[in-house]
Amino acid sequence: MTTTTGTIDPAARRVPPFGGVNTTVLRIELRRMLRNRRTIIFTLIFPAALLLSFGGQSGWDDKAGLGNVAAYILVSMSLYGAALTAAAGGSMVALERSLGWSRQLRLTPLNPVAYILMKTLVALVMGALAITAVNVVGAIQGKAEMPTHIWFECAVVTLFCTLTFAALGVFVGYVVPGENAMQILGPGLALLSFLGGVFIPLDQYSDVVRHVAYWTPMYGVAEIARSPLTRELPWYAVVNAVAWFAIFVVGAAWRMSKDTARV
């Protein structure tokens, strides 16, 4: 048997840089998200529609921190939209795993950590789109007023706050496999938003409800996202945000590691 001509020299083969992540993959992943009608409705249309219906309530021009109430509502709605989008993106990690796509990817040089980072990046880009959509609609509506640099600060802080919900999406995606995850995440996030003072300010609730609200996951990030505008940030809001982020990340990692039996 001759083995000289045909054999492949392992030393001649290279390993791709960045664990396999590249612009082609990122482009295709983003295009996938944008082609998904459900994602578009959740990301771009729903939060903007909420802004239009909530943002015009009486007293919209009252002062709130460095801007007005309409600005306060604008930041809240963009947080809600971005959180929903990030959660949807997170739940896709679990969905792709249940479909066996992650296993298929394990047959390529793509590093599993690089895969999660890539998904996070895509979720952030989608979150940024959601935030932009709400802000553009808010600007067109013309009611929200705050200094320009505050608009940007709020948008950037909001974007990072959405990472919590990307982790929540991964976690819920594993607990409720398949495409049902969004059926839970959608109403769930709406409920948490009510409780966390995203849709209605907490001081309009009774004492009991308000004390429960301080412990829920939307409360902390909402306070943080609005803090450039309100110039107020209670210490327990920061503790809340950090704690829930940690809980969701640990929960997602725990479910993921339980699932590695067949990758």
Binding site: N36, R103, P109
Partner: peptide, 21 residues
């Protein structure tokens, strides 16, 4: 390491595909 260098490929029954691509 062999996979990272593209030396090994597999067609698995369980390897899923993304329906929307």
């Amino acid at each position: 390491d062999a996979i990272a260098r593209g030396l090994v490929s597999a067609v698995m029954q369980t390897g899923g595909l993304l329906k929307d691509l």
